[in-house]
Design a binder for these strands. Structure first.
Lengths: 145, 145
DNA sequence: CGCAACCGCAATCTTTATGGTTACGAATAG
DNA sequence: CTATTCGTAACCATAAAGATTGCGGTTGCG
């Protein structure tokens, strides 16, 4: 889990926030979202797929098509977004230790437990915030809350 | 943060646990650690560098050389290990949004705050465990605690 | 002293994941 | 029919991660 190069969560949060800002006005094209996020429109669509599948977003093709929120911004926690994009992938990178080494086997089991615990901790933290909070600039550090 | 391919934390935990298991007997060569972890010995040394710099480990070259714990296993929390290896790298992958887009700027600020909060949450979770816990097989999931 | 065992470190190589690009079909107005 | 939009697959370019190579320095032992 060192330096993450995967920007999908950040892009998703960005897009959801953008859509929350225009909520109800009009669908927003992936081209427009691309301009805001600086991410390729095809990639935007790729990232948003799972969120649509989960019912957070709606998309329609054609003229006047685009994306819009399918639920209120205040009902979308960042934890949910994160879980949808993270899926079952491990959070901690796991190595493949020598199976014939007893220490390694025990460590691998412990790491699997830790991975789940860490994923839950991340989700718990993110569950404190919604897309509406982001839009309203309410995501501030705890020490200042 | 999706699928982490960085195995450094896992390798470090593995090695620390292994060394805790032979504590005081003898220094352990990176070749032996390589055999257990299935990770190249040069890479093992590379991973362990920061831990040695922080005083958790000692290494010596030459005949009968190798690595050993510099502090008791029960005094090494996994949070400390994680922090040492993670450094200041972001946990959440951040994209580079269009600077002239107001939404993007706000989101970027929020994501920076979230990144710190998530890193703290991870560290908090990992601070519940020490290398000794891993060795003793005491890392179990919470729901079973 | 020579040799083997070890670490420290840099440079290079190989593999893999990520996001960009291209292409094209399907769906939607005007 | 044309233009606009999404959905999706395949391919491309790049960066990150770990492996490999090379070599110097340090440490016992015969």
């Amino acid at each position: 889990m060192a330096r993450s190069t995967n920007t999908r969560f950040a892009v998703a949060v960005h897009v959801l926030t953008y859509l929350a800002g225009v909520a109800g006005e009009r669908p927003v094209s992936s081209d427009e979202l691309s301009a805001s996020t600086n991410v390729n429109p095809v990639h935007v669509r790729r990232v948003l797929g799972p969120l649509r599948a989960a019912g957070l977003l709606r998309s329609r093709p054609g003229v006047h098509g685009g994306w819009e929120l399918a639920v209120p911004a205040g009902d979308i926690t960042l934890a949910e977004v994160w879980r949808l994009l993270q899926g079952e992938d491990p959070v901690l990178g796991l190595h493949g230790p020598n199976p014939s080494c007893e220490v390694g086997r025990g460590v691998q089991e412990s790491l699997a437990v830790l991975d789940r615990a860490v994923a839950d901790a991340v989700a718990d933290e993110l569950s404190r915030f919604t897309v509406h909070d982001v839009l309203a600039g309410k995501v501030i550090s705890r020490s200042r809350a």
